[in-house]
Amino acid sequence: MRHLATLFLMTPLLINSTAWAEQRWIQGIGYVEPASEIRRLAFKHPGILGEYKIQLGQTVKAGDLLAVQQNIEERAALTVAESQLLEAKADLEKVLAGVNPYEIEAKKNAQRVSALDAEYAHRKLDRIEQLRSNKFASEDDRDLAETNAKLKQADSRRLTAESRYLTHFVRDVDKQLALAQLAVADAQLQSAKQRLAETYLTAPIDGTVLETILRVGESTFSVGSPEPALLLGDMTKLRVRAEIDENYALALKDGQKAIVFGRGLGDKEIPAHVSMVKKIMGKKTVFAKTATERKDIDVIQAFIEPDAEMQVPIGLEVNVKIAID
């Protein structure tokens, strides 16, 4: 295998009878990956893997359930939170209900009747006062009418106060407390639902299950960090992530013609093009495993998209050559 990203000359092409042009190529090495990249899916919180809901190589849709943690405690916490919310709702309804509305209506009707009685007693007192001034009523008649008017007025005020008390039986402080307790119970329920949902691992994209990493019963966290449970990738569109020697970084451009070849492809050469050149340099990670190969050079990554069908395994090491001006 030739040195990574070596620059070489192809056979000159005849342009016309007087001019020749040379097509120059740079060569690199890389590996095949999904255009969506490989998704290393892990659970959000520590736990124990309960079961896989898929099989290796299975095609799934975005949102499909892939794996589940053991979640007996989370399901029990959700049941408790639902019960607490129902209790908080019942307490609020009890506070808001206050007094039976029919009792309040009856008290208001009694208060209106009493107000009419008080008004009649006051008018009767006025008439007794006129009769007394004309010597047609005694002092006792006047005192009796005045006392009766005062009693009727006092009874009307009592019923008014009782109606107001029954109408405002629910205090604002009690109502606010019940509402606050309901809000807390609802928040606890949403938290319990979210925690239970996080014990389920779902597919973020359409793709194929490339690998199941953990075994049922193993921890989904290792040394405080999430442990990937499976690998997922979209096999419908593949590309090559190639590494090119830093000496040719400035010669790379999007859209350049490329060819994918290599030992894993046999004699097959797949036409392709450069879809993107990364804007950052990095250390070499893919090696040709030759005796003269340098391993301490910096490289730039280029994504190579095939222009023809490429049905090969993910991770296959391939060579690429890119045409430059």
Results as ranks from 00 to 15, higher is better:
197 A>M: 02
160 T>H: 09
145 A>F: 03
155 D>F: 01
174 D>H: 08
184 V>E: 03
148 N>P: 01
141 D>S: 13
174 D>V: 04
168 H>E: 08
160 T>V: 06
167 T>H: 05
127 R>F: 11
123 R>H: 06
205 I>A: 04
194 Q>K: 09
172 D>P: 07
154 A>K: 14
138 S>K: 07
183 A>S: 11
101 P>H: 08
106 A>K: 13
97 A>P: 03
153 Q>S: 15
124 K>P: 00
96 L>E: 14
141 D>T: 11
186 D>M: 02
182 L>N: 08
142 R>A: 12
151 L>F: 07
191 S>F: 02
202 T>W: 00
169 F>Q: 11
105 E>N: 06
184 V>Q: 07
194 Q>Y: 03
111 Q>I: 00
128 I>P: 02
182 L>S: 09
173 V>I: 13
210 L>W: 09
136 F>G: 13
144 L>N: 10
164 R>S: 15
141 D>G: 08
98 G>P: 04
191 S>K: 09
163 S>W: 15
140 D>A: 13
206 D>R: 12
128 I>G: 04
111 Q>N: 09
161 A>T: 06
110 A>S: 06
205 I>V: 14
204 P>D: 05
144 L>W: 01
105 E>K: 13
175 K>R: 15
104 I>V: 14
143 D>I: 05
112 R>F: 08
100 N>F: 07
187 A>G: 10
130 Q>M: 03
152 K>S: 15
170 V>Y: 06
98 G>Q: 02
196 L>S: 05
173 V>R: 09
96 L>T: 13
144 L>I: 11
95 V>Y: 00
135 K>H: 15
193 K>P: 02
104 I>S: 03
208 T>R: 12
202 T>A: 01
192 A>Q: 02
115 A>N: 07
165 Y>R: 15
198 E>D: 13
155 D>W: 01
156 S>I: 07
201 L>T: 08
164 R>E: 14
156 S>L: 06
127 R>L: 14
118 A>D: 04
209 V>P: 08
134 N>Q: 10
132 R>S: 15
123 R>V: 01
140 D>V: 15
196 L>P: 07
178 A>C: 11
203 A>G: 06
194 Q>I: 03
97 A>V: 05
115 A>L: 08
189 L>G: 00
121 A>N: 04
159 L>D: 12
198 E>T: 01
208 T>N: 09
204 P>L: 11
173 V>G: 02
133 S>C: 00
210 L>F: 10
133 S>Y: 05
145 A>M: 04
110 A>R: 03
198 E>V: 00
206 D>H: 14
187 A>Q: 10
102 Y>H: 14
98 G>A: 13
192 A>M: 02
202 T>K: 11
191 S>L: 13
210 L>N: 12
104 I>N: 01
103 E>I: 10
184 V>G: 00
102 Y>C: 01
168 H>V: 00
101 P>G: 07
195 R>L: 05
178 A>Q: 03
132 R>D: 05
180 A>N: 12
183 A>I: 02
148 N>Y: 08
153 Q>E: 15
130 Q>R: 08
112 R>M: 12
176 Q>F: 10
98 G>E: 01
138 S>V: 08
134 N>G: 05
157 R>D: 10
118 A>V: 06
178 A>N: 04
153 Q>L: 15
162 E>P: 11
113 V>Y: 05
158 R>E: 09
155 D>L: 12
98 G>C: 04
210 L>M: 12
113 V>G: 03
152 K>F: 05
166 L>R: 12
194 Q>F: 01
105 E>F: 06
